[in-house]
């Protein structure tokens, strides 16, 4: 198989995983579908020469976030699960339109071509490694990340902790 065919298969798999994620009746399976989608995305990232991002994607998005979702489902959705299962048939009907839509849009997009009417980036290709970029060149982003994580942490403290206590 050529490189391109593999890419096409991977993209198709990604879209199918996403479709399954939203179409499956049980929320738990949906969370697992998200994990699978993330994993496929991680593979794509590997293939797109972005191993570091792929590792993060695999560990955090395919690992941590589904776990968060699953534990949330565990805390909330026990009642939901049964009612959702009962509505499975209705649900399929609801998402049948999505299938058609995805096929049509995919067809349209494949036949269309992105116009090549812009220049490639000028200047030399930077040679720094992602680590250097991240740790040495984008300190401002790092401070932003600290802020984001702090906000998330306070969110947990305020929302989750109190929620559990109640």
């Amino acid at each position: 198989m050529t490189e391109n065919s593999i890419n096409i298969v991977l993209v198709a798999a990604l879209v199918l995983a996403a479709l399954w994620t939203v179409m499956t009746a049980r929320t738990l399976r949906s969370a697992i579908g998200l994990a699978i989608t993330s994993a496929i995305l991680a593979i794509i990232m590997f293939r797109l020469a972005s191993p570091l991002a792929a590792v993060f994607e695999l560990s955090v998005c395919a690992g941590l976030i589904p776990v968060i979702f699953i534990s949330t489902i565990g805390l909330t959705a026990r009642v939901e699960e049964e009612s959702m299962a009962a509505k499975q048939r209705e649900k399929l009907r609801k998402y049948a339109a999505l299938l058609v839509l995805v096929l049509v849009v995919a067809g349209v997009l494949v036949t269309m071509h992105l116009p090549n009417d812009f220049a490639a980036p000028q200047g030399p290709v930077p040679t720094e490694s992602p680590q250097v970029v991240m740790w040495d060149l984008r300190h401002v982003d790092l401070i932003g990340q600290i802020g984001v994580l702090a906000a998330g942490a306070f969110g947990v403290v305020i929302l989750v902790k109190v929620s559990k206590r109640a």
């Binding site: 932003g144 906000a151 306070f154 969110g155 305020i158």
Partner: peptide, 22 residues
């Protein structure tokens, strides 16, 4: 991109601030 990151910092803290009283 940094602009986006800091906007996001502000937004996330705003989510929690809005929900603060639960």
């Amino acid at each position: 991109f940094s602009l986006y990151v800091f906007i996001e910092v502000t937004s996330i803290s705003s989510f929690v601030l809005i929900a603060f009283t639960l």
